[in-house]
Amino acid sequence: MALDPSFVGRTYPPTDPYEVGREKIREFAEAIGDTNPAYTDTEAAKALGHPDVIAPPTFVFAITFKDAGQVVGDPQLGLDYNRMVHGDQKFAYTRPVHAGDRLSVTSTIEAIKSMAGNDIIDIRGDVHDEAGEHVVTAFTKLVVRAVTEEG
């Protein structure tokens, strides 16, 4: 069933701030095997001009995708999570995420399309810090695969 295009432009209320911890950044950097000292060594990060250790570029996805759950789980939209795959992902950074950030995400449905029976939904997640300054925007394209005969 095609998704309702009238949902385009809908913005979901920001969730409670996510507090970025040094050890969470370290855990993520270790999980991707990245030994860049900017992620784990406060002095190394400061030498590069950052206030504290910074997070790898894709770290913020965990925060934005959790917020996008409001869209994915919106019963009125009726997106079938079990047939959903991640199509595209993009980030546009104003500055890197760093330890101590308290980040809130506002998710907006940017587009809904139907192609060859697949539903395609574009969700934009705008991430701001506690001062209200923009940090990064995540653009997430989700594809809900068509129900096939065998499926």
Partner: peptide
């Protein structure tokens, strides 16, 4: 690794 400072990345996008 090439740029040294990860903050050099201003935009990054992929298709899976």
């Amino acid at each position: 690794d090439w740029a040294g400072d990860p903050a050099a990345v201003a935009e990054y996008g992929v298709r899976f």
